[in-house]
Amino acid sequence: MKVVAQRPESLTDAPFHYCPGCTHGIIHRLVAECLDELNLREQAIGICPVGCAVLAYDYFNCDMLEAAHGRAPAIATGIKRLLPDRLVFTYQGDGDLASIGMGEIVHASGRGENITVIFVNNAIYGMTGGQMAPTTLLGQVTTTSPYGRTAEQAGYPLKMAELLAQNQGAAYICRTAVNNPANVMRTKKAIKKAFQTQMQAKGFSMVEILSTCPTNWGLSPLEALEWLEKNMIPYYPLGEFKVS
């Protein structure tokens, strides 16, 4: 019998803990497929965030560390400076990267730190139960913006890909989404390109991936995919912001 699909070697057989319809699982698989296809699993060192993906060290079948909230880029820096020939990647959510870890991510990109950041943007704090994130859209209801986010009270959602692409040290910055099969394939291509950018020692690379949180958005998995397309993509345009 011919095998047409199987678990990538870069994923363990531990079942994901993610909620039904959450797109973290898809993104994990894409990262793992890229590690496999580039034959990088044994050279890879990954850093998990604080947030829903905190347990990613149970899922990726390579050396893994878990970081304090927002500090993954600093930890990645420490590793990469001492092991420059390894593939070092962080996997971070929007609260982790764009709020408490803003200092670390901006400076890692500014230094042109030769690491790859997988940035999962679902516009909400998932693990802590649906609070407002720096990427929460205007009008979006969360437990800490119960009447909908307003610019007057909480300012405007941050566009991280655009922000970091301005830094000279950033070599590859791309925003994708995983709301349909075509976008999933584009996301995989972007992750692969980011890893290649790092292996060619070109500098900082980040793929911002628009992702869903059906549980905290209060939507069914299918509705969540539609909500992402209708609300997130117009504010967070997809595409490559920096290629070098």
């Binding site: 850093i47 560390l65 500090r71 600093a74 820096t77 420490g78 590793i79 001492l82 670390e104 400076h107």
Partner: peptide, 17 residues
């Protein structure tokens, strides 16, 4: 490092190697 927080976390990553 850009901050003391970053410095100690760089130590964390580097010590892990």
């Amino acid at each position: 490092a850009e901050s003391e927080l970053a410095a100690i976390n760089m130590v964390y990553g580097a010590a892990a190697t």
